[in-house]
Design a protein around this nucleic acid. Structure first.
Lengths: 289, 289
DNA sequence: AGCTCTTATGAATCATTGA
DNA sequence: GTCAATGATTCATAAGAGC
């Protein structure tokens, strides 16, 4: 029996994380308060101060992340005075100086983005999901997020073209023959670094929620069951909710009491996972928090 | 009768542009050689030197662009030693210091990206289209790129682009708008800053073309007929081809003789556009180049 | 004309081998 | 050791051929 823990903390992650040991988390997945957005609620970090505000916290993230772990930062700069502000790209450079590896930049395409019309720009339909790592040897479970192949596959794989055979038989025997058999049955393909996820509408209490599918995708990709996930800007607790559902331990930190309270309501009490022979017999029983 | 000029130059844009006056172009649309890519054909600028290589050219672009004009830069940094290189975001910062406004960043989602599998990353399926301007009052013709809503429209659009390819160019000048106006009673929507286009895979002579639809979209969005477009890294001349089709004047500059020659072959001689009442009476007659 | 089927290949990235 | 060249991996599109 494995216990899945989901812990919520009220406070500034800079202070709360001081009590956590080095190399504690397999994944940090967060969407921090955007500069100047939610200024009423979060005290309004101005775009120009954003990097200075973020960096000491990034240092703590670097400390508590395992060497094999990953940090996913969902963020997008807004337009300020007719321009895209540069605080996000400056943040990337600053974090590299701090010791992070900037491994990848995923694009989250928001299929149903916010409506609106402006004379000088179109609706903003994408956000960055920046991937940072401590080392080049990080855990990645690609099979966990495979996607169905396109319709083209069925016809295509019936009759493999000569090129395919030529290109691959040029290898010394071992390669294609084996792979053909892999391919013919294959219905799934590896995804790309562009994610197509709709935003979830209707959450009025927390203005900057991401859809559950966003943390779900990254949690599946970068962690296994019983791993430990951190969301240092937990908001209404979406990341922790998803982590719990996927049987990952998680820690959520939120500075605003309203959101902290909301997160507590959204998170079910501690779960217990029972391993039994019958897969359908995985039960969830609630326990003390 | 309006004459559409399409001029191609062989040489380094840094030198060729010296002969052009200030404020000459309404749109600069280009995809420069990426760092260290195609090093056999182009010089192979190393990622670390890329900004220094680019900046003097950017200065010329700034000079020859009209105050109401736009500069679209299609670029993507590669992975170097397990990380995304930072030369593109450093370029953005350098260009801002040079006097550019970084107005927007469009995402070009490449639906058919290069295949492959690696233990630490997925396939790269997007590129940046960075929008820079000289002033906050730039021309933008949003209606020219409106898209029909719904799935039925997608098929319609596909068919349209097919007939486009078949020399049905009479539709094209103002045609897109006209066709679209047929659907105006149906719902039209403004697009977003995410473009979904497939790369063209059939081109054997030039390995790095962008699909025609990419410059087409930006030319429609940021210029009107008879405006003047520049592609300082013209390659096989895709931008100029499209500009000509859309009845915009254009200048293409290419440093490699092979591509310059290829561009010349791809560009039809100077066109003359006749304005007459009957839409079908728009004729093209060839003249000296 | 309009459909299906065939075929080539694309701004990729990492691991391994060779100089 | 460092650096350059070669090999291995793999998905989606459109042009072209055939009916």
């Amino acid at each position: 029996m494995t216990r899945i823990k989901t812990d919520l903390y009220l406070g500034d992650c800079l202070e709360v994380l001081a009590d956590f040991g080095d190399d504690s988390f397999d994944l940090i997945m967060t969407s921090p308060p955007y500069a100047d957005r939610r200024s009423k609620t979060y005290g309004g970090i101005s775009p120009d101060e954003y990097v200075n505000w973020f960096m000491p916290r990034a240092e703590e993230f670097l400390r508590v992340l395992k060497p094999s772990g990953t940090f996913i930062l969902n963020i997008k700069e807004q337009a300020v005075d007719g321009e895209r502000h540069t605080y996000v790209i400056e943040l990337i450079l600053a974090m590299k100086r701090q010791g992070w590896l900037w491994t990848e930049e995923f694009v989250w395409h928001k299929k149903n983005c916010y409506p609106g019309k402006w004379p000088n720009r179109f609706r903003d339909a994408w956000e960055r999901c920046l991937q940072f790592n401590k080392t080049r040897k990080f855990n990645m479970y690609q099979e966990a997020v495979m996607v169905p192949m396109g319709d083209w596959a069925e016809k295509r794989l019936k009759n493999l073209s000569k090129t395919d055979q030529n290109r691959d038989t040029s290898k010394v025997g071992s390669g294609f023959g084996k792979n053909v058999s892999n391919w013919v049955d294959r219905k799934m393909a590896y995804p790309t670094n562009v994610l197509h996820l709709a935003t979830e509408t209707g959450n009025r209490k927390h203005s900057a929620v991401f859809p559950k599918s966003l943390p779900e995708w990254f949690i599946r990709l970068f962690t296994e069951e019983n791993d430990r996930v951190l969301d240092p800007f937990a908001g209404s607790g979406t990341t922790c909710q998803v982590a719990q559902k996927l049987l990952r331990n998680s820690v959520g930190i939120e500075i605003l009491p309203e959101y902290y309270q909301l997160a507590r309501e959204n998170i079910k009490p501690t779960q217990y996972q029972l391993f039994e022979e019958d897969q359908n017999a995985i039960h969830y029983t609630t326990g003390d928090h």
